[in-house]
Design a protein around this nucleic acid. Structure first.
Length: 103
DNA sequence: GTCGTGACTAGCC
DNA sequence: CGGCTAGCCACGA
């Protein structure tokens, strides 16, 4: 079962365009709880819409991959396929590829 | 209803 | 600059 909070997380996550990435804090802020970054990670981890919701486009606020249900390696690989290069567990030009949600 | 955990963040030493 | 601690939210047991 899913809660309203989780649905919002996945919803925002799904609207992230290909080749772009966002941070947990930003996503949390978009939902309305900028301090709920951890809760966001929780929701994504339990994301039942795995392939539908590109949770691999969500990284830490520092540009690091952070974590991934399938492993950070897979996350980095997928991002690379979308045009987002990952080096040493960090997103290249993360700041430039950072996607902000429309309020 | 309370405790513990987690894909985090920011501050402090 | 690097590592550690405290605080935050939501969920499961």
């Amino acid at each position: 079962m899913s809660t309203d909070f989780q649905e919002q997380v996945w919803r925002y996550c799904a609207q992230i365009p290909r080749g772009r990435v966002t941070s947990y804090r930003l996503l949390a802020k978009a939902i309305g709880s900028p301090q709920a970054s951890r809760a966001v990670g929780n929701a994504l981890n339990k994301n039942p819409y795995a392939p539908e919701v590109p949770c691999h486009r969500v990284v830490k606020n520092d540009g690091r991959l952070g974590g991934y249900a399938g492993g950070t390696a897979a996350k980095a690989r997928i991002l690379r396929q979308e045009g987002v290069f990952v080096k040493a567990g960090r997103v290249v030009d993360f700041r430039d590829k950072l996607f902000t949600f429309a309020v």
